[in-house]
Design a protein around this nucleic acid. Structure first.
Lengths: 117, 117
DNA sequence: ACTGTATATATCCAAATAGTTATATAACCT
DNA sequence: AGGTTATATAACTATTTGGATATATACAGT
């Protein structure tokens, strides 16, 4: 079920270029050219990476004239984090915080909107 | 620096067989045969998966007569979880819990040993 | 209409991955 | 010593991946 999601998500995260792109997008939307700039790599290569990220549902694309801006999608990350947290806590033998963290994940993001930027 | 670790860790986690093996190992050490049993796959294939997991530092091997039991190693998982939690929280715009969680990860596993099984 | 800019697609290539079968190694049991 | 069990290694194959270059598409500005 979610196995496919996890496959695609972790595979997408396994590449440092893609992780850097995600990190960059954490500070807001960006166009392909903007995303490509930091890398010693052709534009088509970046487009491919973006396609992988999109395939994993980690980003979505918009439209701004000829630009096709990318924005982050947090949901697949939550799944992946959920898997990791679950097993990490599990095999560390800590069952107390596990429950709390799983509840937190299940409830979804809560935004206290205080440190909001 | 830790980029290589993250590459290997996420790549290892991208395969459902390997995730299942890790999940299985969360409940304790197991031999190769025990780990292979649930899968419709040859034993050498499982040995390969174990090699990948070991290469990522996710498991370590022991020796028990002709058996070579596998046990989980939590540290690379902590790194991966750290990366995910950092960016997930970041792009969800929640900076309060981020600090708390990073401190928690940096401090390492604390075992209150109350719900301990 | 023409030019430049942004992005995608096509084709190709080398290397890595995930699996197979067959064989080797190592340790146990009689 | 001989047989069985557990695991690893070798050799092979098909598929996927990450990159390149060259080309196509789409929109903007003049």
């Amino acid at each position: 079920m979610t196995s496919n999601h996890l496959n695609a998500t972790f595979a997408a995260l396994a590449d440092p270029t893609r992780r850097a792109i995600l990190a960059r997008l954490a500070s807001g939307e960006a166009s392909v050219m903007e995303l490509a700039a930091p890398f010693a790599m052709s534009q088509p290569a970046i487009s491919k990476h973006l396609k992988v990220l999109q395939g994993a549902g980690l980003i979505s694309r918009g439209r701004d004239a000829q630009r096709r801006p990318c924005r982050l999608e947090a949901q697949p990350l939550a799944e992946a984090t959920g898997w990791l947290v679950k097993y990490r806590e599990l095999w560390e033998g800590n069952f107390q915080r596990l429950d709390a963290l799983l509840d937190e994940l299940k409830a979804g993001p809560k935004k206290p909107a205080s440190t909001k930027r």
